[in-house]
Amino acid sequence: MTSTQTRVAIVTGASGGIGRVVAERLAADGMSVLVHYSGNQARADETVAAITEAGGIASAFRADVADETAVAAMFDAAEQRYGGIDVVVHTAGIMLLSPLAELNLDDLDRMHRTNIRGTFVVDQQAARRVRTGGAIINFSTSVTKIALPTYTAYAATKGAVDAITLILARELRGRDITVNAVAPGPTATPLYLDGKEQSVIDRMAAMSPLERLGEPKDIAEAVAFLAGPARWINGQVIYANGGVI
C-alpha cells in the first residue's frame, strides 16, 4: 500500500450503536467505509448519509455475517467499489441474556451462529484479502472478566472470539497485518439500555472509577487507534471499559 492510497474499511454491524460510531470515526480519519448491515437498510442508509454529509466516502452492503457466500460478496463489493481492503472491524453480534440453568438452547445456537461462526467467516475473508499494513479488529466483551450473572452464554461466545483473535494474529505472521479485539464494558447504546431499570444503569456506571457508562465514541477511539497508528499492538484483547476490571 502506498502512502497516497486511501485506506478502505469494512465495518460490520454499522447500521447503529457502536458500529455506526466506529464507521463514522474511521471515515472522519480519511477511510472509505463499507457499511455492513443485516436487516435495517434505513439505518444503514442513515449511517452512509451521515458520513457523506461530513465529507466522507461510504456505501452500504447487506449480508448475513454467518453466511460465507454473502460475506465473500461483501468483500468483493468493497474491492470493486474502493480498490481493496485495509481494515475490517467486526462489531456485528447478538446478546441474549439468561441464567445458564434457564437458557433456551435455541438462543445459545443463535448466538453461536452469529457471534462465533460470524466472526470466523468474516475473519476468514479478512485474512485472505486485507492488504499489507492492514488491521483486523474483532469485538469481544469485558463480561468475560467481569462475570456478571445472566451473561453466561453471551460471554462464552465472546471467549471464542478472543481465541480466534489471538491465534489468527499468529497465523498471519509475515503479512504485516495486526489482529486485535476490543472488549467494551457497559456502554450507553440502545441495545444495552433497553429494558434496564435506572437503578441497574446507575449501579453499572458506578463500577468504573470514572463513574459513568462508556459512550460509543469511547469505543470508536480504541478502534481508531488499532486501525491506524497502533502497529505494535497485535494479538491482544483491549478492554475499553473505563477501568471496570
Rank of each mutant, 00 (worst) to 15 (best):
residue 5 Q to Y: 03
residue 8 V to R: 08
residue 10 I to F: 04
residue 10 I to L: 13
residue 15 S to W: 00
residue 15 S to I: 03
residue 15 S to H: 01
residue 16 G to Q: 14
residue 20 R to F: 07
residue 21 V to L: 13
residue 21 V to W: 01
residue 23 A to W: 02
residue 26 L to D: 04
residue 29 D to H: 04
residue 30 G to A: 14
residue 31 M to R: 14
residue 31 M to W: 10
residue 31 M to D: 00
residue 31 M to E: 12
residue 33 V to I: 08
residue 34 L to C: 09
residue 36 H to C: 06
residue 37 Y to M: 04
residue 37 Y to N: 04
residue 40 N to I: 07
residue 42 A to H: 09
residue 47 T to I: 09
residue 47 T to Q: 00
residue 48 V to C: 10
residue 51 I to R: 05
residue 51 I to V: 09
residue 54 A to K: 03
residue 56 G to N: 11
residue 58 A to P: 01
residue 60 A to Y: 02
residue 60 A to E: 07
residue 60 A to Q: 02
residue 61 F to E: 03
residue 65 V to C: 11
residue 66 A to N: 06
residue 67 D to Y: 04
residue 68 E to M: 00
residue 70 A to H: 06
residue 72 A to M: 02
residue 74 M to Y: 06
residue 74 M to G: 12
residue 75 F to W: 10
residue 76 D to T: 12
residue 77 A to T: 04
residue 79 E to F: 03
residue 81 R to K: 06
residue 84 G to L: 11
residue 85 I to A: 10
residue 87 V to P: 05
residue 88 V to H: 09
residue 88 V to N: 11
residue 88 V to M: 06
residue 91 T to W: 09
residue 92 A to N: 03
residue 93 G to M: 07
residue 96 L to D: 11
residue 96 L to N: 13
residue 97 L to K: 13
residue 99 P to Y: 06
residue 99 P to N: 13
residue 99 P to T: 11
residue 104 N to F: 02
residue 105 L to G: 08
residue 106 D to E: 15
residue 108 L to H: 12
residue 111 M to A: 02
residue 113 R to K: 13
residue 117 R to L: 07
residue 118 G to H: 06
residue 119 T to G: 08
residue 121 V to D: 14
residue 131 R to E: 15
residue 136 I to H: 03
residue 136 I to K: 00
residue 138 N to R: 06
residue 141 T to R: 13
residue 141 T to Q: 02
residue 145 K to L: 09
residue 151 Y to Q: 01
residue 153 A to Y: 08
residue 154 Y to Q: 07
residue 155 A to Y: 02
residue 157 T to D: 12
residue 158 K to F: 07
residue 159 G to M: 05
residue 160 A to G: 14
residue 160 A to Y: 00
residue 161 V to T: 06
residue 163 A to S: 12
residue 163 A to M: 04
residue 166 L to A: 03
residue 166 L to C: 00
residue 166 L to R: 10
residue 170 R to A: 07
residue 172 L to R: 08
residue 175 R to C: 11
residue 176 D to P: 06
residue 176 D to R: 15
residue 179 V to A: 00
residue 181 A to F: 11
residue 183 A to N: 02
residue 185 G to A: 07
residue 185 G to M: 08
residue 187 T to G: 00
residue 189 T to H: 01
residue 198 Q to S: 05
residue 198 Q to T: 03
residue 200 V to N: 05
residue 201 I to H: 01
residue 202 D to V: 06
residue 204 M to A: 14
residue 209 P to S: 05
residue 209 P to M: 14
residue 209 P to Y: 11
residue 209 P to G: 05
residue 212 R to L: 14
residue 212 R to S: 05
residue 214 G to A: 10
residue 217 K to C: 12
residue 218 D to M: 09
residue 229 P to F: 04
residue 231 R to N: 08
residue 232 W to H: 13
residue 233 I to N: 01
residue 233 I to M: 12
residue 236 Q to G: 08
residue 237 V to T: 00
residue 237 V to G: 00
residue 239 Y to I: 04
residue 241 N to W: 10
residue 243 G to S: 11
residue 243 G to I: 10
residue 244 V to T: 14
